[in-house]
Computed example of a mutant assay.
Amino acid sequence: MEEAHVGVFAISVAADMASMQVQNLRVYERRGLVSPGRTPGGTRRYSHNDVARLVRIGELLAEGLNLAGIEKVLALEEEVARLRLLISVR
Rank of each mutant, 00 (worst) to 15 (best):
I57L: 05
G7F: 05
L86C: 12
R90A: 09
R38Q: 03
P40T: 08
M20K: 03
G58K: 05
L60C: 02
K72C: 15
M17C: 07
E29P: 02
R53I: 06
R45W: 07
N49W: 12
P40W: 05
M20P: 01
G42L: 00
H5S: 15
G37R: 05
N49E: 13
K72S: 15
R84S: 09
E63C: 10
E3H: 15
A15G: 03
A75K: 11
I70W: 03
R82Y: 13
N66G: 10
L67G: 02
S12H: 12
V55I: 09
A52W: 12
L60I: 07
R56P: 01
V22K: 02
A52P: 10
N24E: 14
Q21K: 05
S12T: 14
Y28E: 02
S35Q: 13
E63G: 08
T39M: 00
Q23T: 07
R30E: 10
H5Q: 13
L65G: 00
V73S: 08
K72T: 15
F9G: 00
G64W: 07
V8K: 12
R38T: 06
N24K: 12
D50V: 01
S35N: 11
V34G: 05
L61C: 11
G7Q: 05
R26H: 08
A62C: 08
R84D: 11
A4Y: 13
L76C: 08
R53F: 07
T39S: 03
V8Q: 06
I70Y: 04
A81R: 09
Q21W: 03
G7R: 01
L67D: 06
E3G: 12
A75G: 14
N49C: 07
